[in-house]
């Protein structure tokens, strides 16, 4: 495992911790898209079924369990927690995420490494992860003002993707048989979706002002 991959995993972990911190400390999930969180839970459940079939390392297995558990916990809090669920911006979070699920499933049935149950689910999870942030970005755009922790959450999620791209470039040059083009193409799409957000994030950081997205 190279440094970029490790930094990618760590920024991913930090983003989840920031989200949990926000929900725990403020007892609020305003500005957070439940649809995006549900998609992530689905992504992790579909991809990490290989916990039962393939063992790579203790690190990998622990991270997989952490990602599944934390994403389910977040969804549970937003839907069921007596206090937290009241702050959910339901009327702003109207992205029709079922279409994303259907489109990604169709694509996974057409394009995958091998037509087996686990491989289709794996490709599905990769495609879905690439677009899972869309409901969140739409929600932020609609609400205009982005609170500090929510902004940091999305920033770290984007940083995770950027580090993964560096990781693939590194692997491409250092490993002889590294070819995982489904991940790489999807990863590039996913990172590109953050470009706009990053632009406004850096502007607000440079001007030391509150993060605001144009309507």
């Amino acid at each position: 495992m190279n440094i970029f991959r490790f930094l990618g995993d760590m920024t991913h972990l930090i983003s989840i911790l920031i989200l949990l911190l926000k929900i725990y400390a403020t007892k609020s999930c305003s500005g957070i898209s439940l649809k995006t969180q549900e998609l992530y839970a689905l992504v992790f459940l579909a991809r990490y079924l290989d916990l039962f079939t393939d063992f790579i390392s203790v690190y990998n297995s622990v991270m997989k369990v952490v990602f599944i558990a934390s994403s389910l916990a977040i969804v549970w809090c937003m839907r069921r927690h007596r206090v937290v669920r009241r702050s959910y911006d339901k009327e702003l979070d109207t992205f029709r995420h079922y279409f994303l699920v259907a489109a990604c499933l169709a694509l996974a049935l057409l394009v995958q490494e091998k037509f087996t149950f686990l491989e289709v689910l794996w490709a599905f999870s990769i495609y879905l992860e690439a677009v899972a942030i869309l409901p969140q970005l739409v929600l932020l755009q609609r609400s205009g003002n982005v609170d500090n922790l929510t902004g940091q959450y999305v920033f770290f999620l984007g940083a995770y993707r950027a580090f993964y791209i560096l990781n693939w470039i590194y692997r491409y040059f250092t490993e002889t048989h590294f070819s995982r083009w489904i991940s790489c193409v999807s990863g590039l799409v996913q990172t590109a979706l953050y470009a706009d957000f990053f632009y406004y994030y850096f502007i607000s950081w440079k001007n030391n002002s509150k993060l605001q997205l144009p309507a």
Partner: peptide
């Protein structure tokens, strides 16, 4: 048929 590399990323 080339064996696909293991899925070692998260």
């Amino acid at each position: 048929q080339v064996q696909a590399p293991p899925k070692d990323e998260l």
